[in-house]
C-alpha cells in the first residue's frame, strides 16, 4: 500500500500572499484590465489610433477622457480576457508603434494641458522580428527620455504585470501607484530562474529573490503608493477594484495639479535620480 506522506502544515493563516502567488494573481484572466479601468473610472473615453508612421498597435491603447470633470489622456497596455481578444492585442505586449503612438498622444496632452494617466499591465515589450526591425529598443529608449521631460503631470498605475522595459516605457511619471497584488520586475520570474537557476521551475524562488511585490517595491522606493484591492484580489470584485484605483488617481491628480510644469519636471528627475540611494 502506498504510504501517505503528509506535508508538514504551514502556518495556519498566512498574512499576505507570497511573491509567486502575487504573480499568479497579477496574471489572472479575470483581473480588471484596461477596458474595465476605462469604463469604470473615466467618462466618455475617445480612443485615438496610430503612430503616424507605420501602424496602429493594439497592444498599447490611448485616448482622451474625463475624470471628475478634468480632461485627461489615458494610455495603457491592452490585455484581453479571451484568447481571441489577447491574440488581437498581442497579450498586452506593445510594438515600437505602440510606444510611438503613446508619445504622439502625450505630446498633445502636454500642448493642451491634459494630465496623463497610464495603466501598466504587460508581460514585456513584444519580442518579434518586425518589432526589432522597427526599433523596439529605440522606441523604449525614446519613450523613457520623452516622459522624463514631459511638461504635464503623469500618473502611473501598475495594475497587473509590470514586465521590464516594456512596462517602464510608459511608467516614468510623477506618481507611481501600484495595485496590492500587481508585480513589477526587471525580468519575469521564469526568465530569471531559467538564467540564474538554469531551471524555469525555480520561478517561485526567483520571484522571491527579485523583490517584485508592491510592499517590497515601496520599501525600495521604486513606487510611491500601494492601491488596496478587494479581499482575495481584484479579480473577485472588479468594480470595487476600479473604484479604489479611481480614488487613488483623483487624489494624485489633486496633489500634482498645483505644481508648475518646470517644477514637476525637476521633481520627476530628482525622483529618478534617487533610484539606487547613492545620495
Amino acid at each position: 500500500m502506498a504510504k501517505v506522506v503528509r506535508k508538514k502544515a504551514g502556518p495556519a493563516k498566512r498574512k499576505a500572499p507570497c511573491a509567486m502567488e502575487r504573480v499568479k494573481l497579477a496574471r489572472d484572466a479575470k483581473r480588471p484590465h484596461l477596458r474595465d479601468f476605462i469604463a469604470n473610472i473615466f467618462d466618455d473615453f475617445e480612443e485615438l489610433h496610430g503612430d503616424r508612421l507605420v501602424n496602429d498597435d493594439r497592444g498599447l491603447v490611448g485616448g482622451f477622457a474625463t475624470l471628475d470633470g478634468t480632461p485627461v489622456l489615458v494610455l495603457g497596455h491592452n490585455k484581453g480576457e479571451t484568447v481571441e481578444e489577447n491574440m488581437a492585442a498581442n497579450f498586452g505586449m506593445a510594438n515600437p508603434d505602440g510606444y510611438r503612438k503613446a508619445m504622439r498622444l502625450a505630446k498633445l496632452a502636454e500642448r493642451f494641458g491634459n494630465p496623463v494617466v497610464t495603466f501598466v499591465d504587460t508581460p514585456g515589450a513584444y519580442p518579434g522580428r518586425e518589432a526589432e526591425e522597427r526599433g523596439q529598443a529605440e522606441a523604449i529608449a525614446k519613450s523613457l527620455e520623452f516622459f522624463s521631460t514631459l511638461k504635464t503631470p503623469v500618473i502611473v498605475v501598475v495594475t497587473g504585470e509590470g514586465g521590464s522595459g516594456g512596462a517602464l516605457a510608459i511608467a516614468v511619471g510623477d506618481k507611481v501607484l501600484m495595485l496590492e497584488n500587481a508585480v513589477y520586475s526587471v525580468i519575469s520570474p521564469e526568465g530569471c530562474a531559467g538564467i540564474l537557476w538554469r531551471d524555469g521551475s525555480k520561478a517561485p524562488e526567483a520571484a522571491e529573490a527579485l523583490k517584485i511585490t508592491a510592499p517590497d517595491l515601496l520599501k525600495l522606493g521604486a513606487i510611491d503608493e500601494i492601491v488596496p484591492e478587494p479581499p482575495g484580489g481584484a479579480q473577485n470584485d472588479r468594480a470595487a477594484a476600479c473604484a479604489l484605483v479611481r480614488a487613488a488617481i483623483v487624489k494624485a491628480l489633486a496633489e500634482l495639479a498645483p505644481i508648475a510644469a518646470d517644477e514637476l519636471v525637476a521633481r520627476r528627475y530628482a525622483r529618478l535620480r534617487a533610484m539606487g540611494n547613492f545620495y
Binding site: G165, V186, K211
Partner: peptide, 13 residues
Amino acid sequence: GILSLMQMAKTSA
C-alpha cells in the same frame, strides 16, 4: 532587481 530597471529611466532622463 527593480532598481537596475530604474537605471534605464534614470540614465535616459
